[in-house]
């Protein structure tokens, strides 16, 4: 069997760094080293985010040259991104030069552009969820789907408080569902996710998975 070991240096770096950070969680003497490496990781993650933003920008600048209907949207995206960055740099300049770190215009963008869109997307989800729920019931009517919607209905009825519809028993049933069976299921799911995370993480630290080569 031929075995080709790809990216040996990168694998060695990932394994050694990972082992040092992991040991810092359980060996007190290695804790300062863990904090230093976590700081390095934080800076690298921040730079990776910037690389991602630059990549997004370059992809949409290329798309702007296309003669299809999406090129206009790409232009809007590039303008929105550059404007936000420009205003952000202006606010940063003001913060450091004049000691005025209130980020007035960046906050304006957040309050009047980002937040309305985010809240509206969330609001549209109220409609989408009802549509998805009816779609699920039409496509797959089994005991689990019926049980799922029965629970949803009970929790919703127990959560709303209307003067003409005040049934304390519904609140008690909701409280019991949320605090007992849902906690059992959620614990199982959380433990499963944690076990999956540990397995995947250990595979990377042991060099079995190498998502950095490429």
């Amino acid at each position: 069997m031929k075995f080709k070991f790809r990216a040996p240096l990168a694998t060695a770096i990932a394994m050694s760094v990972g082992l040092v950070v992991l040991s810092g969680y359980f060996i007190p003497a290695a804790e300062p080293l863990r904090f230093i490496l976590l700081r390095v990781g934080m800076v690298l993650a921040a730079v990776a985010l910037l690389v991602g933003v630059i990549n997004l920008l370059s992809v949409h600048i290329r798309k702007m040259a296309d003669k299809d209907s999406n090129s206009w949207n790409s232009f809007i995206l590039v303008v929105a991104l550059l404007a936000t960055l420009g205003i952000g740099f202006y606010d940063m300049f003001k913060a450091y030069m004049y000691g005025n770190p209130n980020f007035e215009w960046t906050n304006w963008i957040f309050t009047y552009i980002q937040r309305p869109i985010e809240t509206s997307l969330m609001a549209v989800m109220a409609v989408s969820l009802v549509y998805a729920a009816t779609y699920l019931l039409r496509r797959k009517m089994n005991y689990l789907a019926i049980g799922f919607f029965f629970i949803v209905l009970l929790v919703l009825l127990g959560s709303i408080s209307l003067s003409m519809m005040n049934f304390p028993i519904l609140k008690d049933i909701r409280s019991w569902i949320v605090h007992i069976p849902a906690v059992g299921g959620a614990r199982g799911l959380l433990l499963g996710i944690a076990l999956g995370t540990i397995t995947t993480g250990l595979r990377i630290i042991m060099g079995t998975d190498r998502p950095y080569e490429g």
């Binding site: 990216a7 990168a10 694998t11 770096i13 990932a14 394994m15 050694s16 760094v17 990972g18 082992l19 040092v20 950070v21 992991l22 810092g24 969680y25 490496l37 976590l38 390095v40 990781g41 690298l44 993650a45 990776a48 996710i193 944690a194 076990l195 995370t197 540990i198 995947t200 993480g201 250990l202 990377i204 630290i205 998502p211 950095y212």
Partner: peptide, 15 residues
């Protein structure tokens, strides 16, 4: 590799 190694270890420790 540094980023992934630190991230994986932090994820394992955090989990």
């Amino acid at each position: 590799a540094i980023l992934v190694g630190i991230g994986a270890a932090a994820a394992v420790g955090g989990a």
